[in-house]
Simulated scan of single mutants.
Amino acid sequence: MTQEHAADELEWSLSKLIRIEAGTVGVAVTDVKAMLSLYNVTDAELISQLISMARVSRQRPWWFEHREDLPAGYATYLGLEEEATGLYFFQPIAIPGILQTNAYAQSTLQGGAATELSDDERSSRATLRRLRQERLLGGDSRPRIDAVLDEAVLRRIASDPATMRDQLNHLLRLAEDPLITLRVLPFTAGFVSTISGPFIILEFPDGADADAVYVESALMIFQIMDRTDGVPPYRKAFGHLADAALDPQASLAYIAQIAAELT
Rank of each mutant, 00 (worst) to 15 (best):
Q257I: 05
L252N: 08
E121V: 08
M35V: 00
Y214L: 05
I200K: 06
S196Y: 07
D69C: 06
Y39H: 12
A175C: 08
I20F: 00
A75C: 08
A7K: 01
G86L: 06
K16Q: 04
E261K: 10
V32G: 01
T85V: 15
T108D: 05
I51Y: 03
G73K: 02
L38C: 10
R155C: 10
P186D: 01
R227W: 02
L182V: 04
L185G: 03
D69P: 00
T30Y: 01
E261D: 14
A34L: 13
R144N: 10
A34S: 14
D166F: 12
W12A: 00
T108N: 07
T76Q: 05
G73D: 04
N102P: 02
Q91R: 12
A250L: 12
A210I: 02
F90T: 04
P92N: 10
A126L: 12
R135W: 10
A210L: 04
P232W: 09
E261H: 11
I51N: 03
Q59P: 00
V148Y: 01
N169H: 12
L36Y: 09
L38A: 07
E121Q: 14
T228G: 06
P71L: 08
L149C: 05
F89V: 03
L36D: 11
Q59K: 09
A94V: 15
D177T: 11
V25S: 01
V29G: 02
T101F: 02
R144E: 13
P198L: 03
R144W: 14
P92A: 08
A105M: 13
A212C: 10
A158L: 08
P186Q: 02
A218R: 12
M53A: 12
T181D: 14
T188Y: 04
I20D: 00
L149W: 01
M164Y: 05
T181L: 12
Q257L: 10
D166R: 15
R60E: 15
Q91W: 02
R227T: 04
T181M: 15
V148H: 01
I201T: 05
L246W: 01
P161T: 04
W12F: 02
Y214G: 01
N102L: 07
T127Q: 05
T85W: 13
R173N: 14
D8R: 11
L219S: 15
G23A: 03
V215H: 03
L202F: 13
S251L: 08
Y254P: 03
L154C: 11
A175K: 14
F64R: 09
M164P: 10
E261W: 05
Y254I: 03
